[in-house]
Amino acid sequence: MSELTKEEPPAAPAAPPPTSVTPSTYLKSILGRPILVRLHTGVTYRGILACLDGYMNIAMEQTEEYGVGGELESRYGDVFLRGNNVAFISGDTKAK
């Protein structure tokens, strides 16, 4: 098998990682999807990402608020989160 294949192409010269996902491409990929947002305080918001900007200001729909211990605190229809509070945004695969 290996003899039949043409010689290997020369190793790509220090090719940049082909699968680099920058923050902006990641944000585009999770628009309209269920997300989990963790604030620096430890409070978590789960909902549908409606839109956001470069400051990580976030507008969410069908939002659930979870306390630091993970218990459901409240539900909101629409939520605006100011970006300076955001620790991270995660595509929420476990969301229904």
């Binding site: 990641y26 944000l27 999770i30 430890g42 970006g83 620790a87 995660s90 595509g91 695969t93």
Partner: peptide
């Protein structure tokens, strides 16, 4: 997260970290 000496781990598929 380490709070009051208690270590809590959370697994996530993908994250955009501020």
């Amino acid at each position: 997260r380490i709070t009051d000496g208690e270590r809590k781990e959370v697994k996530l598929d993908s994250v955009l970290l501020n």
